[in-house]
Computed example of a mutant assay.
Amino acid sequence: MSGHGFGHLAQTAPVLAALAQQTPLEALTLCCALPARKIRYKLTLPHIHDSEPRDVGLIQTDPMQPDLPATAAALDALHADWPQKLAREREKMAAFRPDVVIANIPYLTLEAAQGLGIPTVALASLSWDRIVAGYYDVAEPRVAAWLQRMRVAYGGVDLALAPHPAMADAPFPHVVEIPPILDAAQPDRAGLRAQLGISPEETRPLILVSLGGIPIDALPFDLLRRERRGLFLIDHPDAPHEENLYNVGRLGDWPFGAVIGSVDGVVGKPGYGMSVECAAHGIPFLYARRFHFADEASICAWLAQHGRAREITLEQFFQADWWADFEAVLAQPTPPRPAHDGAQEAARRIRCFLQRE
């Protein structure tokens, strides 16, 4: 799995859990640069964790902005000794002898598996060639070389599963669209409030404020404290836990999908996981766009159809100046909930694919 934020893990872990329910898994090796504790938070299946990075993704200065010089340097380093990295990956893979490689979506791993004749499945709502091409001059030789390497690997995938809302024009040859993938945990509004120490008599809405899994220096704690019409659950390690402010860290092992389904609103950015969780649970969602990440347009279009969602500016987000927008979303009719059994469908597709191999 790519280690760019937590979105790739959040998509993959429910699929692996559903696959384990449908067919016995003899062994599972998880290759991802994310910390082991973050993986265990999402994936309870027994597994071996190989933390060596398999791709770059995007290096971020914060959740809203990529560090393009650092990303380019990392891509140059990854591709500089590609044959050696590919040989090392194949050596590891041959020792494990997998029946299938499921990638979300490191192209090094896919190319290594293809060279060994191992069946490959891409689980992907985006592809790194499309993302990278949106930031760099594709006519530049080194950029063209990056993209060519990605597209060769993606073009050799045996099966690609694209959970809605996925980018169009994926580079994979055999794409099957599936419903959104959600966290399997169930919402518990009363339980969440109780764990945070919120009185049962408290009627103000509890709103999650989060920009996802990539660190940010600060969020507008003081401005939120002054907004007395709401309670604010803040996804930041330094968030206060006092007055009308609550720190997500106090929830311990609560699955993040269950947190989203248990609050009265979410304010954040339109990443895959947060968007589909809000829509599936009918949670009002205010989002500030990045405008440069290539999968954002498809997610926002999907939210307009399936979610109770409204765009705000980044300035509004950091000024905590969005209460009128929140009330406007509350007044919207709730659209029919989208299908959200993508994990079960992905597992079924993978199982059937392996039975044919």
Rank of each mutant, 00 (worst) to 15 (best):
L58M: 06
L75Y: 15
P46A: 01
T23K: 09
E26C: 02
D81K: 08
L34W: 04
P53Y: 13
L43H: 02
G57C: 06
R37S: 08
E52N: 03
L45N: 00
A73K: 14
A33V: 05
V56Q: 04
T71Y: 05
D81G: 10
W82Y: 12
P53D: 12
D62L: 07
P35T: 01
A80M: 12
L28C: 11
L68R: 11
D76G: 05
P63C: 09
Q65Y: 12
W82Q: 01
I48P: 07
A72M: 14
L25G: 05
H79W: 08
P46W: 03
L25K: 00
P24S: 04
H79D: 09
C31T: 06
R37L: 12
Q22E: 09
A20R: 03
Q21T: 02
M64G: 11
H47N: 02
K42G: 06
Q65M: 12
A27I: 00
A27N: 04
R40T: 08
P66Q: 11
A36K: 01
T61P: 13
D62S: 09
L30D: 05
T29L: 05
G57I: 06
T23G: 08
L34P: 01
L68G: 10
A73R: 14
Q65F: 10
Y41W: 09
P63I: 02
E26T: 06
I48H: 15
C32A: 03
R40H: 13
A20P: 02
H47S: 00
L75E: 12
I59R: 12
T71K: 06
A36W: 04
P46Q: 03
P69A: 07
D67L: 09
V56K: 03
A27V: 00
P69R: 03
L45C: 03
P46M: 05
I59N: 12
A74D: 14
E52W: 10
S51F: 10
A36P: 10
Y41P: 01
A36L: 00
D76N: 06
